[in-house]
Design a protein around this nucleic acid. Structure first.
Ligand code: FES
Ligand code: FES
Lengths: 144, 144
DNA sequence: AAAATAAAAGACTTTTTTATCTTTTATATA
DNA sequence: TATATAAAAGATAAAAAAGTCTTTTATTTT
């Protein structure tokens, strides 16, 4: 559904958001460990997210990654778009081009509906929405 | 959403189904041309589909690929499962493991619903369902 | 039986994605 | 201002997916 890179990105965002609530900054190594992902790969992904202003960062001692007030309200859809582009939200889910609005294939409308639901769901899910559950340790971001 | 291999497989199945209606067999070169896909790659994919009994084939002169009566009713879900496995139908759409039925994440239920709809749609779409539209040239399987 | 045809199987190459390593730049603190 | 720290940037490596080629096997027709 999404690329591995994108999955890591989402988990990283959710983790950083939680850590940032209390004003803390987090290094990429800690992030990688928390979400059980390869360190240098997470570093690369965070750079991408930074360029898209989906995370903030500061260099030097006590530096690290964090998420500010506004960014807390960014949605999972933003993250997906930044990493995987918007091909998931547009075009045929089968990746086919042989049908159109005017000459819909037998599954055209169902596909459209599902795609729209997916988009709406991701657009209404903010990265900070998970903070509470993480705090209460009801969910965990690792792989186990 | 699906792998390229899977997209080719679906388009090939749909094409072969239409050609088979009138009892004809089709060579992999013709199939590749019709769906605008690389010839040797399609040959490989057809072998996979053959092993899963999703297409029939016969060797020698006037041989080729075809789809018999029963197979006409196989669904797109069968093709997807044969090529990409069933990971699209199971587990979290985000590829995450940090939530469960008991401790659902904020988007758990929406995700579940969407995934189920997707599965139902693919399970109710047969490969022969496209024959009519192809006959009437309302849709085309090529890339242009 | 021999020749021709067409798929099956297996080895191989290219491209893309995923992951890693090294050097540079920026910032804080002593 | 020197040193330590941490991210940014860029180059490289490994793995997976996509695509290609060659040989083998089965079938039909002559
Ligand atoms: S072929 Fe994908 S929606 Fe019609
Ligand atoms: S994290 Fe994917 S459904 Fe909950």
């Amino acid at each position: 559904m999404f690329s591995k890179t994108c999955e890591y990105a989402i988990r990283a965002m959710i983790y950083i958001a939680q850590q940032s609530k209390s004003g803390g900054k987090t290094g990429f190594k800690q992030i990688a460990h928390a979400i059980d992902a390869p360190e240098p790969f997470i570093a690369k992904i965070l750079q991408q997210l930074g360029r898209e202003n989906l995370v903030q960062s500061s260099k030097g001692p006590h530096g690290g990654f964090y998420i500010n007030e506004q960014t807390m309200n960014r949605t999972l859809a933003d993250v997906v778009k930044a990493i995987d582009g918007d091909k998931i939200f547009s075009g045929c889910g089968l990746g086919l081009t042989f049908c159109s609005e005017k000459n819909p294939c037998p599954i055209h409308n169902e596909f459209k509906s599902i795609r729209n639901q997916m988009q709406q769901m991701l657009q209404s899910a903010t990265v900070s929405q998970f903070n509470d559950l993480l705090d209460r340790r009801l969910v965990h971001l690792g792989r186990n």
